[in-house]
Design a protein around this nucleic acid. Structure first.
Lengths: 113, 113
DNA sequence: CATCGATACAACTATATAGTTGTATCGATG
DNA sequence: CATCGATACAACTATATAGTTGTATCGATG
């Protein structure tokens, strides 16, 4: 089975909504079904269900059947994939600083005359 | 001067586009102006300029005037704000695991009869 | 197996977003 | 100060997204 490459558009897009971020947070405890989560928000059940579907497509939550409910579980690995990209940018930043210092020390060693 | 609270909708929304993520990556070196960055993409100059404006509103890049150009600089602090939120979710996850283990060991200590 | 609670999805509306072209502003320079 | 390179922005189009209501499916249970 082929693991899909991370779809950062979907991931960050899914995180770009306060309701969905709240669902991610609540679903960390992996205790509540779709209807229970929907109860927290002032929108319709269907709207919340759609938000959960967006999170699921983004790989940020999974659903686990428990009786007639489907319990929503935050997917830690999904969160980590997103976080790693941001870490990479910070890593590049650190590399830049190193390159800049190297350049400066080169100039110190061999000053243009 | 009042520091604006982080607008995660804008931040993650800005990151939810491959072109904008690429601009963030390139702008880490803080060497290129809007037109230079625009050269990398097959869309119009105006479109790239809009992407940069979106990143700027999200606090992920800043622009620095250099002569008649404006050099685009990735804002490390902005990236960190986004990353910290993801870290918080992982922290909550860790807390959950701890709570679950505590519950299990409680059950071991005081078995229901 | 009829019923009901829980979830899924279709169809629709309103708004946001990504792209376009054209015009305006702004700063360096002959 | 006219010019030109670089940036900003207005106005528009096409498409994606967030919400709605209504209907269908699916699983546990009397």
């Amino acid at each position: 089975m082929q693991v899909a490459p991370p779809d950062f558009d979907r991931m960050f897009g899914a995180l770009a909504d306060a309701t969905r971020r709240d669902i991610v947070r609540r679903a960390i405890d992996a205790e509540e079904g779709v209807a229970e989560l929907a109860g927290y928000y002032s929108m319709s059940f269907a709207a919340v269900q759609k938000h959960i579907a967006v999170l699921e497509r983004a790989g940020l939550v999974t659903k686990e059947r428990v009786g007639r409910r489907k319990v929503v579980c935050t997917n830690l690995e999904g969160l980590r994939i997103a976080r790693r990209l941001l870490d990479q940018y910070e890593e590049l930043w650190r590399g830049r600083v190193v390159r800049m210092s190297a350049l400066i020390s080169d100039e110190t060693k061999e000053p243009p005359r």
